[in-house]
Computed example of a mutant assay.
Amino acid sequence: MTTHVVVGAGPVGLAVAEHLRERGDDVAVVARHVTDKLPVGAEHRRIDVTDAALAKAAFEDADVVYHCAQPPYDLWPDLFPELTRGIVEGVEATGARLVVAENLYMYGDVDDRITEDLPYAATGPNGRTRAECARMVLDAHDEGRIEATIGRASDFFGPRVRNSVVGEQVFGEAVDGKPARVLGKPKLPHTYTYVPDFARALVLLGERDDALGEAWHVPNPETVSTRQFVELVYDAAEVDPVLPRIVYLSGPLLTLGGAVSSSLDGFVNSPPLKEFVERRYSFEAPYIVDDSKFRNAFGDAVTATSLETAIDATVAWYREQEPVTGPIHIETGEEQSFGATHQ
């Protein structure tokens, strides 16, 4: 039986672990904090994988390692390369296969559909950092040091996803009957990724030899405008259609983080918004992700959940949660769990 080690206990890491456990696979999750959110039967390993020797110990019995962790958003340039390097060296030392969960920051501002053959043209510090980490992984594969593949997702939503541009600010507000708070121009098309689809795609990539050495955009539901997305959420939450459903931050206010209505204070005053300005382009122009490479290569092995079904499931998850108190810090990447702390 294959043994899987998942680094990161955020929404994607937990979704990967959950999918693997549902199949009956052995799973260990490397995460900083002790958590009661792990799937039944998953092992917890509290090991600092930024240290290559400790990463080797964490991965010793692994056939496949999934890198689904990230440092705090505002510390990516300082910490992300160290995290990725430790994982790569740990995988190299054990002979495990590496699957990396990534976003799309490395491409920068794109005028057309977003495909895997685009250059890494990001100019901001976080986009450049993601490009550096991607090159580190693919270079190690090309040099024959490891076997690796990368799955890339757009801004995502789904169960457990709170710190996303369409997380608590949209789904949480909807189930509370309050207006959604979004960034950029909601009338524009924007591709969103459903986290359970992302997880299933990452597992598939780790199983396929023909996926190695390349990056893949995972399957996504149909692309609609952010306004249409919000409307589907509010319909699923059965919010009175006469109530206002959306407020948004765009243009100079998005850049400056300036004074806006008090209904937006929850995310205007949060530090990650300052970092978000780096990629405001993705919400102020059409942002359409092309996943045809994955679909053409792997057929129906993993298909995207329909947008309505995915939204219904996400609304149901939010209804089961305790209310959130205090501001939600918006993130637009994947995991919020940075490796682990060795204690």
Rank of each mutant, 00 (worst) to 15 (best):
K37G: 08
D235S: 14
A316C: 03
R97H: 01
Y234V: 06
L38P: 10
A153Q: 10
V218M: 12
A121L: 12
S154Y: 03
H329R: 14
D235M: 13
G266S: 11
G13E: 11
D36C: 13
I47V: 14
Q336H: 07
T129K: 10
N269G: 15
R319C: 07
L98M: 13
E214G: 01
P196G: 10
A153F: 05
D290I: 07
G90E: 08
V7N: 09
K187E: 09
L253W: 02
E116Y: 01
P71M: 15
T129F: 03
D51I: 00
T223A: 11
A28E: 06
T314W: 11
N220G: 06
H67W: 07
D48G: 04
V324G: 03
P219N: 07
E222V: 09
D51A: 10
L232K: 08
L118H: 02
F298H: 09
V182D: 03
A153T: 10
K178G: 04
D240E: 15
R245H: 02
L75G: 01
A55P: 00
T309W: 01
D25W: 02
H33Q: 06
F59S: 11
T223D: 11
V170W: 03
Q343G: 10
D117Q: 07
S282W: 00
G177R: 14
V315A: 10
